[in-house]
Computed example of a mutant assay.
Amino acid sequence: MNVRLAQQEDADELLGRSPLALLVGMLLDQQIPMEWAFTGPHTIARRMGHDDLDAREIAAQDPESFAALLSEKPAVHRYPGSMAKRVRQLCQYLVDHYDGDASAVWRDADSGAELLTRLTELPGFGEQKARIFLALLGKRFGVAPEGWREAAGAYGEEGSYRSVADITGPESLQKVRAYKQEMKRAAKAKKSP
Rank of each mutant, 00 (worst) to 15 (best):
W106Y: 07
R4M: 13
A187M: 04
D51I: 12
G25D: 02
E157Q: 10
A187G: 08
A178G: 11
R47Y: 10
D110I: 14
I32L: 09
E13C: 14
S82F: 10
A60Q: 12
R17S: 11
V95H: 02
L136M: 13
K85S: 15
A113G: 13
W148P: 00
V87W: 07
S71F: 03
R131L: 04
S82P: 11
A75G: 09
R47K: 06
R17M: 08
G159F: 08
L134R: 02
R47M: 01
L23G: 00
D99Y: 12
L115Q: 01
P145W: 04
L15E: 01
R78N: 00
G16Q: 01
T117D: 15
E13M: 13
P145C: 00
L5F: 06
M183P: 03
A109M: 06
G142R: 09
Q31H: 11
A11Q: 00
R162C: 01
L122W: 01
D96L: 06
E114W: 04
Y93V: 03
G81W: 06
G138N: 05
R140I: 05
L23V: 01
A178H: 05
E121L: 13
G159L: 07
V164L: 15
H97P: 04
A75E: 04
D62W: 08
G138P: 05
T120M: 13
D99Q: 11
R185Y: 01
M48Q: 10
M34S: 14
T168L: 12
L94V: 05
S18L: 02
I32K: 02
K129E: 09
L70K: 03
A11T: 05
S172Q: 15
S71H: 04
